[in-house]
Simulated assay, not measured.
Amino acid sequence: MYGTMKVAIGGPLKVAFRPWVEGLENIPAEGAAILASNHLSFSDSFFLPAVLDRKVTFIAKAEYFTTPGVKGRLTAAFFKGVGQLPVDRSGARGAGEAAIRSGLDVLERGELFGIYPEGTRSPDGRLYRGKPGGLARVALASGAPVIPVAMIDTEKIQPPGKVMPKLMRPGIRIGEPLDFSRYQGMEHDRFVLRAVTDEVMYEIMKLSGQEYVDIYATAAKRRISEAAKAEKAAKAAAAKAEAAVVQAEKDKPESSAS
C-alpha cells in the first residue's frame, strides 16, 4: 500500500511543487536511521517521503485513524498509505511514550523513522526548543544515527486559514548523520537527553537558517493564543464602552428653548 500511495501522492507533489533537495547522499541506502526535522507545515510529512527512495515512517495523532464516517475512513487509509503510525495522546506522558515505542519498533526493522523534536508545528516559522523525551531516548536506546533535516518554506504553501495551496518550490536540506554512541546506556539521564537534543537542534538551525527560540513551541502557541484572546477582549471592551457613550449621548434630555 505504501508504494501505491507514494506513487499516487509523491509523484503529483514533485510535479506540482518541484521541491529542491540538498544532501540526499546522507540518507543511508539501508539500515536504521532517525530523520529529525523542523516542523513548519502539515505537508512536511509528505514532501520528505516524496523525495526519498526509502520509506520513512512518521507518527500521527490517533484521531486521524479513528474518526468515524466515510471521511474518517478515507483519512485513516491516507495516513496509513503514506507510512504514518497512530499515537495515542491520552495521559500526561502518553504521546511521548507511544512515540518512543513506535520509533524503536520501526528502527528494529532496519527502517527510517521520522520525528519532529519540537513536538508540534512552529507557530511563526521560527525554530523552537526540542523536547528531549522522544528523539534523544529513541536515539540512545536504538543506537541509530540521527540525520538532521530542514524543511524550507513549506509553511508558505498553505498558511493557516488558506484553503487552496500556493504553487511554489519548497526545499529540503539533509545534514550529515550524527553519532551518539558515546552516550549509549544513558537514555534515562536527563542532562544527556538535553545535550543530545540541543546538538540536533543546533544542526537543524544551521541547515534551515531559522531564528532559534529557547522555549517550547507549545508554550509559544499558548502565549500567542492568550495574547489573541486578550486583544479580542480589549477590542470588545472598547466597543462596549464606545456604544455606552453613544447611548448616553442619545439619552441626554434636550435643553429647553430660551
Rank of each mutant, 00 (worst) to 15 (best):
P177D: 14
Y183G: 11
A139C: 08
K131F: 08
F17Q: 08
F113D: 01
A92V: 09
D198K: 06
K55A: 13
L193S: 07
V196L: 03
L167Q: 00
F58P: 03
S256K: 11
V7K: 01
R126I: 00
T66C: 10
F58H: 05
A220G: 07
V245F: 12
F42H: 14
D44I: 12
K162L: 13
A8M: 05
T197H: 02
F58Q: 05
P132V: 01
A243T: 08
I174M: 03
E111S: 02
A239G: 11
P19V: 02
G31H: 07
Y116L: 08
P170R: 03
L24C: 13
G119N: 01
A230C: 07
G143S: 09
E249Q: 15
V51H: 06
A219C: 00
D88P: 11
G119R: 00
A150H: 03
Q158T: 10
Q184L: 12
V56C: 03
A29V: 14
A62D: 15
P160L: 05
M205W: 05
G130H: 00
E22P: 13
E118W: 11
P145V: 06
R126V: 00
Y2I: 13
E111A: 06
I100R: 03
L193W: 04
E187K: 09
T120A: 01
R173Y: 10
A233W: 01
A92T: 08
A243S: 12
E155P: 01
S45M: 07
Q210D: 06
A36G: 11
D124C: 00
A139E: 08
T154R: 08
P117Q: 01
F79V: 08
T57R: 10
S208H: 07
Q184R: 15
P145C: 06
I27H: 06
D251A: 15
I34N: 05
R173D: 07
R126E: 04
G119Y: 01
D251M: 09
Y202I: 04
L135M: 05
I34P: 03
A233H: 02
R223H: 10
S255A: 15
L52F: 01
I9R: 00
R101C: 06
K232H: 01
T218H: 14
G31M: 09
G103D: 05
G31S: 09
L104S: 07
H39Y: 13
H39Q: 12
E242K: 15
A33P: 09
E111R: 02
I100C: 01
I59C: 15
K166S: 12
